[in-house]
Every structure is written in C-alpha cells, then in structure tokens.
C-alpha cells in the first residue's frame, strides 16, 4: 500500500508538470486604440501596431481550440461611461511566423480550431472597432481581451 501511494504521488506530480509546461500562452502586446475625438468610429486592424498580440507555444502535437473573450464595451475608470466595442470576421489573424503577410484572418467571436505540431509557435493578433458617441465624455476607457487555448487529444 505504501509503495502504491508513493508511485501514485510521483506520477501525479509528473503528469501535472508535464501538462502545464507543454502549452503556454503569453500576451505580447496589449490593445491600444490611442486617442481620438468622440463621435468618430475608431477602427484598429489586426495588422496595426496597437493590436493585441498573443503567442501560443506547444511542445506536443495536439489539437487545440482557441476561444477569445471579447469586451462588449470599453469602460471609464469610474464605470459610469461606456463605449460599445465591435468585432467582425476579419478582426483577428493568426500565423506560425511573426509577420503581417503570412497571416490568416479569422473571426475572434468564433472558436478557432488548429492542429499544433510539436514545438510549434502560433501568433494571434486581435483588432476591433470602438464606437464613441458624439457626447462621449472625454476620459480614458479600458477593456480586456482574454485568449484561452484548450487542447484535445489528437486522433
């Protein structure tokens, strides 16, 4: 019984460590829409410098699903003011290399399925559009984008 527990604990530790280190997601850039007047639609393409940028790295060959939690609004610091945010089928892109020309656009509102090779790096960029009203209060607004990668066994 004692040996069983020791072996079990060792394997438990190994399996968790193995899984955590095999897949990583790192935010490389925050998303910045800059500064502009109210009443003007502010669009940020995924190829713009201010776009959000993530790096996904997998050490194992696996199938992955990428889901992105997008903000419906950018909100003022005191929470009293909101700017609607929108995203479309070309707001995001991914690539295996950090380059504009090789990107494949996708809709960040929909899950993206990818087959990851061993030791492969995937870059993901996300833009979007803000719609400040003409009467929008002049101040700083913020929001957040969360990218989640969920791996599944490869058949």
């Amino acid at each position: 019984m004692k040996s069983f527990c020791i072996i079990f604990l060792l394997m438990f530790a190994n399996s968790v460590l193995y899984c955590q280190s095999d897949l990583t997601v790192v935010k490389l850039n925050d998303i910045s829409f800059g500064t502009d007047f109210g009443g003007r639609e502010k669009r940020l393409d995924h190829s713009d410098v201010g776009a959000a940028k993530f790096q996904i790295q997998s050490k194992i060959e696996t199938n992955a699903t990428i889901t992105i939690m997008l903000p419906s609004f950018f909100i003022s610091a005191d929470g009293s003011e909101k700017i609607p945010a929108s995203f479309n089928e070309r707001s995001a892109a991914w690539s295996t290399i950090d380059n504009v020309s090789s990107r494949t656009s996708f809709d960040p509102r929909q899950p993206l399925s990818l087959s990851l090779k061993q030791n492969q790096v995937i870059y993901v960029w996300i833009g979007g559009t803000l719609h400040p009203s003409r009467s929008q209060r002049a101040c700083k607004y913020s929001g957040s984008i969360t990218l989640t990668v969920h791996t599944l066994p490869r058949n």
């Binding site: 394997m11 193995y18 095999d22 829409f33 007047f37 109210g38 194992i60 957040s144 990218l147 791996t151």
Partner: peptide, 24 residues
C-alpha cells in the same frame, strides 16, 4: 489519470485595452 491530464489542458492570457476620448 495521465490520460485525463494530457487530454485536456487549458491555458489563457489577457491583454488590456485602452482608448482615450477627446471631447467631440
């Protein structure tokens, strides 16, 4: 146990967004 652990791994990262509005 290993099968379950390796099969489902979820990781995530968050990017913060900012926009400053000037009066129209």
């Amino acid at each position: 146990f290993c099968g379950i652990s390796i099969a489902q791994v979820t990781v995530s990262a968050t990017a913060m967004g900012t926009f400053s509005v000037l009066g129209y």
